[in-house]
């Protein structure tokens, strides 16, 4: 079944009348998020994000491929998203629906096109060998706000991931396994996060982190991606009720606050995870990477 079940008219009417009184069904403030949990897997590059009941897992992997002919000095970075029936019975295997297209498109614009990952650093031998970094986004449970959760998971996983170290001697390239040499972090240029703002009542009520029910009742939404310095990577508004310039501007301000919180959360969790892995402080000794 390709559609999410529609909420009843009672639920829709009640939700809107509650929002008019600034009340959300789960008791949050209008711009508050549900509790966010971010955890990493045993392997490098797996991040698990839970926002309320929504759960997204991002996995990063790397292999060595030939670069594209027109981009000899760049590595390859691809993002693949998958919505399985595990997340919601409304998703079907093998059939892309609107949610999935939107999700992959926003991630592409936010992370790949904004140059968050320095692809030039993935080049091994120009025109011959480069790393292919592949990010897989798996949605495990869907209770609204998939885009924000996926973006957070993706950035956290990229920051957590380590690619195998390589050594070049003339024509010969050696890729070292994890046991031979401490793997290397990816070169990230900035960390963009996406925040969705849902609007109701012709743009007079703005919400962050809408649940599935709130998403089904909203009139429109604005997806804004930016990094903690307030540099906007993309603004997307696919249809819905019109919004004036001023409310978009106020949106970006609240988004910036939220992005700073996300950035700090990821940083804290990464630091915790590194501390957990760094038994006896050996990681720094093992690394063959030079400080640039």
């Amino acid at each position: 079944m390709p559609r999410e079940a529609d909420p009843s008219t009672n639920e829709q009417a009640f939700l809107l009348s509650a929002l008019r009184e600034n009340i959300r069904l789960d008791g949050r403030a209008l711009d508050a998020y549900r509790p966010i949990s971010l955890s990493f897997g045993e392997d490098y590059g797996t991040a698990d994000v839970r926002i309320g009941k929504t759960r997204v897992r991002a996995t990063i992997s790397a292999d060595v491929v030939t670069p594209f002919v027109d981009r000899k000095f760049d590595g390859v970075f691809t993002i693949s998203t998958e919505l399985s029936p595990m997340a919601s019975p409304a998703f079907e295997v093998g059939r892309q629906d609107q949610t999935e297209i939107l999700l992959s498109r926003i991630l592409e614009k936010t992370v790949r096109r904004s140059g968050a990952l320095d692809t030039e650093s993935l080049c091994i031998v120009a025109g011959q060998k480069c790393f292919h970094i592949r990010a897989d986004i798996h949605v495990m449970d869907h209770d609204g706000n998939l885009v924000d959760a996926s973006c957070l998971a993706l950035i956290a996983a990229l920051l957590h991931f380590r690619r195998p170290d390589v050594e070049i001697k003339g024509e010969e390239v050696t890729v070292f396994s994890v046991r031979e040499r401490e793997p290397v972090k990816l070169a990230m240029q900035h960390q963009p996060f996406c925040v969705t703002t849902s609007c109701y009542e012709e743009g007079t009520i703005l919400l962050h982190d809408a649940t599935l029910l709130e998403e089904q009742c909203r009139e429109g939404d604005v997806l804004i991606s930016m990094n903690k310095f307030g540099e906007i990577c993309q603004i997307a508004k696919y249809g819905g009720a019109p919004m004036d310039g001023l409310s978009i501007l106020t949106c970006t301000n609240t988004v910036l606050e939220r992005v700073k919180i996300f950035d700090q959360l990821v940083k804290d969790r990464i630091a915790e995870d590194e501390k957990r892995r760094d038994v006896g402080g050996l990681i720094a000794e093992l690394s063959a990477e030079n400080d640039r």
């Binding site: 509650a18 009184e21 009340i23 069904l25 789960d26």
Partner: peptide, 10 residues
């Protein structure tokens, strides 16, 4: 009132 309904439901 909306508030009471939400409270009981939660």
């Amino acid at each position: 009132s909306v508030k009471e309904t939400v409270m009981i439901g939660r």
